[in-house]
Design a protein around this nucleic acid. Structure first.
Length: 393
DNA sequence: TCTGGGGTCCTAGGACCC
DNA sequence: TCTGGGGTCCTAGGACCC
């Protein structure tokens, strides 16, 4: 077979059923049974192995539905520390192939192997080598898409699943892309898909053969242009080398769905405090602070609103975040609305060293900052359960 | 006992400033 | 006595991704 991969230096590597694979790799008792990760209570499925998928279980599906589809599936809780550890190791493996690794998430990365051909062979050979390395070192499988651009490589890896490689050489791009359904494109979700279907655009080929101005009238200038380019496989060929770990975050947040809907302000205030504490602690650990505090409120009927407020000085203080969050909540003036979820997010993060505190105004807050730091130290020494705001006890 | 939790980016209107 | 524009910040919502 002719190796057509030479013109395709972009690899997209995607772990197969990552969370589920990691969860079972040390559990031979689970190798032959359907396994679902997450989805307890009111949660949704994070990942499912291929045996569970055979029954129609998909990630993102409500756990209740998944358990109905496959009652004999074993449900396991996610262990994010473990996922992170395996992810880091896998990314290190990639960097032994090439330094040009753009991590997309814990279980996905793009690699530019342009410079590795002389040393390691064609992109296809590199893809197979890399899959063997991941399998031998981590005991999990992955799939690889090989193409000239990131979006085509991404679609190719999906086609390669599970445990395979798909190469899409330049001359095969249109025959590969155009039969696909528009919803398969990266960046086309449910809403855009429905919109396109209403205009009679079903396949990527339909999209490609619609005049650009027509498409832009339908979905807007910028999305229209973007989709048109994707439909011809024409997007970036250059990667932005980065790991998800060292990327500076622009916002940090936390939210929580209540076990049952509530209209009790005390319960909600306490939850906002817990979430504020969690977010502020992460900010202190990352040595960042932020000025814009946003709360999210989701009602029983699933309608969701956000309210935000920008304060004069960036903060990493639990008390300040919570005070602002509660202010925003009370300003909603809700009476007996049933609430399903609340969330707290801090945006506009900057390195804490760049924040200058106005001493006159900040004096009172310094006490709170010192208290937060003492709590952080105690948690570090004695564990997360040892100490927290009194009102959470 | 339908529908999580962590994010990013975009749009759009209004305020405000020059 | 007519009605500039550009830039930035803030707020709210929405779409999307894993």
């Amino acid at each position: 077979m002719t190796d057509l991969s030479w013109a395709c230096p972009i690899l997209h590597v995607d772990m197969d059923a990552f969370y589920a694979s990691v969860a079972v790799r040390e559990r031979p008792d689970l190798w032959e049974v359907p396994v679902i990760v997450g989805g307890g209570g009111r949660g949704v499925v994070l990942s499912a192995n291929y045996l569970a998928r055979h029954y129609g279980v998909r990630s993102g599906m409500p756990g209740t539905r998944a358990r109905r589809l496959c009652p004999r599936a074993v449900v396991v809780s996610p262990d994010y520390d473990e996922f992170t550890t395996v992810s880091r190791a896998v990314m290190e493996t990639f960097r032994r192939i090439t330094p040009l690794v753009e991590a997309v998430s814990l279980d996905e990365a793009f690699l530019d192997v342009r410079g590795s051909a002389k040393r390691l062979g064609s992109p296809l050979e590199i893809a197979e080598r890399l899959r063997a390395m991941v399998h031998d070192e981590q005991g999990i499988t992955c799939s690889v898409g090989v193409a000239a651009t990131v979006s085509v490589a991404k679609l190719a890896s999906r086609r390669a699943k599970p445990d395979g490689v798909v190469v899409v050489p330049p001359e095969a791009i249109t025959s590969f892309l155009h039969p696909m359904e528009v919803g398969e494109l990266w960046g086309v979700g449910e809403k855009t898909r429905d919109l396109l279907l209403r205009f009679g655009l079903v396949t990527v080929g339909d999209l490609a053969h619609t005049p650009l101005p027509t498409l832009q009238r339908a979905v807007g200038d910028s999305l229209g242009r973007h989709l048109h380019q994707l439909a011809w496989g024409a997007d970036r060929r250059e990667l932005v080398p980065r790991s998800t770990a060292d990327d500076p975050e622009k916002s940090m947040g936390a939210n929580e769905t209540f076990g049952r809907d509530t209209d009790d302000r005390d319960i909600i205030s306490r939850e906002l405090l817990r979430l504020s504490a969690r977010v502020a602690r992460r900010m202190r650990t990352a040595e960042v602070a932020g000025r814009t505090i946003t709360i999210t409120v989701r009602f029983a009927d699933f309608t969701t609103i956000t309210r935000s407020r920008t304060i004069p000085e960036a903060t990493d203080v639990t008390h300040e975040v919570h005070r602002t969050a509660l202010l925003l909540f009370d300003a909603l003036g809700l009476q007996r609305a049933r609430i399903r979820l609340v969330g707290v997010r801090v945006e506009g993060l900057v390195p804490r060293g760049s924040v200058h505190r106005q001493l006159m105004l900040g004096e009172r807050e310094h006490g709170w900052r010192d208290a937060d730091r003492a709590v952080d130290r105690a948690r570090f020494r004695f564990g997360a359960e040892a100490i927290g705001p009194a009102s959470l006890l």
